[in-house]
Design a binder for these strands. Structure first.
Lengths: 300, 300
DNA sequence: GCGATGCCATAGCTATTATCTATGGCATCA
DNA sequence: TGATGCCATAGATAATAGCTATGGCATCGC
């Protein structure tokens, strides 16, 4: 069995590749140039291959160096994951946690949930990022996020999800709408009803359309947020579907709109937590989802 | 940024988990018990978590320890891959190379190819393993093999392939067969022709059936190798399809059988090289395939 | 009970090596 | 042709990885 390189050596190689010069790379990793120089030489010795072409204008990786660099980055990333996983396993739901939330959930869920979360997990520091599902998932894949709250179903490679809450859709319209005044509604009644929806890219748009397969979207107008959406409904541009969570949070209060549920089986969307497959904080993501569910049922 | 653990510490942890005792683990990695003890303690310090429960009857990993262990094994595997990749990049096609070959290729291809390979790449030490495709692919996934020569198409997760050679199918029958004496053959002529084939599991069986979609396999007899197959044909049990490579290698010499090609477009199978996705020797696998192709065309 | 045994932790020492400072050689560029 | 920037080497030192010896503490067999 051949000798293994040191993580430190790999770290130095990565810095060297990044900065293209022994001296600057050394500076970047807070050692002196001879130290880094010796470490790279040592690495080349243990690997039995020249990794770097030294020149007067700096250093360039050889072909073998590039191959090693790629794997070195993987090894370092795995090692860093290990550290995070260890900390997470030692004390779950503590420390900085980068959570993405989609815009149709964030303003209605977070005010309810964050205070309880802060009490139950005082060591947890939640950093929030609001964005569309696809971009949140990109963030998960690129390790910029630890977890995300999104609406399901939503398939995406390398992403795993767990549903934590069912969010029912409600029909919203002006009082002079033909369907106004009803207690409940059947999706089939929305046939030929031009629905006002969010812009393309918002998963709520697709989920709403899926919920009432008979309804059609107005193609001439679309809203950029749920708040503007209800205002557009109010001004007579059409009816829409709203998540109950948003209505409960007071989205349509004092708007003078009619809001009614559907007959069972109730149409809706699932709210769930998502994480990168193999993430060091996958377990924590699940626990966070559970904590959110509890805090929702606790004060529902 | 938190301090990273050492590969050595991870190695110690893996040994400890495997042996369940500090003393025996230490022995296994050729250090003394206090050394390993100190290293594990140091690891626990840098991770900020207790990984091991010390008891009088040995050591057991904590929950966090299990989580770290799993990732530690990944990191170590990646690091070992890095070493191999470096050596491969430094001097491709050298050193030990574990090559799997399916039984319907091995006896006919290897005698042609291995001698040239030995001359062109004298430092390459090829270790051969003959088995069915699926088991070879298992070997690739479990890192017991570096590459495999198989017949394509053959989809399998985590496996990548590259075709290197087209192997035409030939029709073989006894001289008293109705189709005997023809120059060429159309697949449609095999309708209702009961074909004698290899046992289930051999991809050649499936590829042969795919080549002539009209033909049907005899379900009462099946051969375990191409050599027994031709003997069974000879004894009148039925006709069959043989890869040209095997015929060229003398499979039916002095057997008194009729062998004829198909009309274009010629039916056949692709012979290709396969490797584990992300393998440290993926590049070498490709090069090996290229070398084999060259050695085939060189003396075809 | 009570040594005997096996296991892990600690202490103190040593050898190794990682890192630093200082310096030299060698290209490139003004 | 000096000046500059870059990497390699040398020598000294601090950090640490490892070893030997030993102690404490359970468990087990008698």
């Amino acid at each position: 069995m051949s000798q293994l390189p040191t993580l430190r050596q790999l770290q130095f190689l990565i810095a060297l590749a990044e900065h293209g010069s022994f001296s600057r790379a050394a500076e970047a990793v807070f050692v002196t140039q001879p130290t880094l120089s010796a470490a790279i030489k040592e690495l080349e010795m243990t690997l039995g291959t020249v990794l770097v072409e030294r020149g007067a204008r700096g250093a360039v990786l050889t072909h073998a160096g590039e191959a090693v660099l790629e794997r070195a980055q993987r090894v370092m990333a795995e090692a860093e994951d290990l550290v995070i996983a260890a900390q997470a396993a030692g004390e779950p739901l503590s420390g900085p946690f980068r959570l993405g939330v989609i815009p149709t959930i964030a303003p209605f869920l977070l005010p309810k949930v964050l205070p309880t979360l802060r009490i139950k997990h005082p060591k947890l520091e939640v950093f929030l990022r609001e964005d569309l599902t696809e971009r949140l998932f990109d963030g998960l894949r690129e390790r910029r996020l630890d977890a995300a709250l999104v609406a399901l179903p939503y398939e995406s490679p390398l992403i795993e999800t767990k549903s934590i809450w069912s969010d029912e859709f409600l029909f919203a319209c002006t009082p002079d709408h033909p369907l106004a005044g009803r207690k409940t509604l059947d999706p089939s009644m929305l046939e030929d009803e031009p629905l006002l929806l969010l812009e393309d890219g918002h998963c709520l748009r697709d989920h709403a359309l899926a919920a009432c397969s008979t309804g059609t979207a107005r193609s001439d107008f679309a809203a950029t947020s749920l708040h503007t959406l209800v205002h557009m409904v109010k001004s007579g541009l059409g009816a829409t579907l709203l998540p109950r969570m948003a209505v409960d949070a007071g989205l349509v209060d004092q708007m003078g709109l009619e809001v009614m549920p559907f007959d069972p089986p109730v149409a809706g969307r699932e709210i769930g937590v998502a994480w990168r497959k193999g993430s060091a904080r996958a377990e924590e993501a699940l626990q966070l989802g559970e904590a959110i569910r509890e805090s929702l049922t606790g004060q529902a």
